[in-house]
Design a protein around this nucleic acid. Sequence first.
DNA 1: GCGCTGACTACGG
DNA 2: GCCGTAGCCAGCG
Length: 119
Amino acid sequence: MKPSTLSFFDKVFEVTCLVPYGRVTSYGAIAKYLGATKSARMVGYALNGSGGKNVPAHRVVNRKGLLTGKYHFDGTNLMQQLLESEGVKVKDNQVQDFESVYWDPSVELQWIKRIYQDQ
DNA sequence: GCGCTGACTACGG
DNA sequence: GCCGTAGCCAGCG
């Protein structure tokens, strides 16, 4: 599999789908994993087109654990509801215990790089 | 085809 | 620790 054959958007979707149940990650972490630390905005923009797809976009928050994208979901608190249903405590648009549920793809998925030998 | 926008982040003041 | 600025780059009008 050649990651370069996938667009940045598709990669974002792939990584997002790999976020474990009950865990969250940040836009920047995904961008970093994709080798574009400064392109965190693209991650958010990509997720903007995740509607209709089976992408758990609610598991992606900003670096502070803030649910900045909740207004892109149906209603006003759907994103929070989804997270809470997974055991993630959310209060006032912010993930509680953020550090303990934080999942960093650049750390958790480094073994995949080893398998692909893509450096 | 140009310019603006954006679910972000890092950095300097 | 808050505020302004810059960098990123794919869509859209």
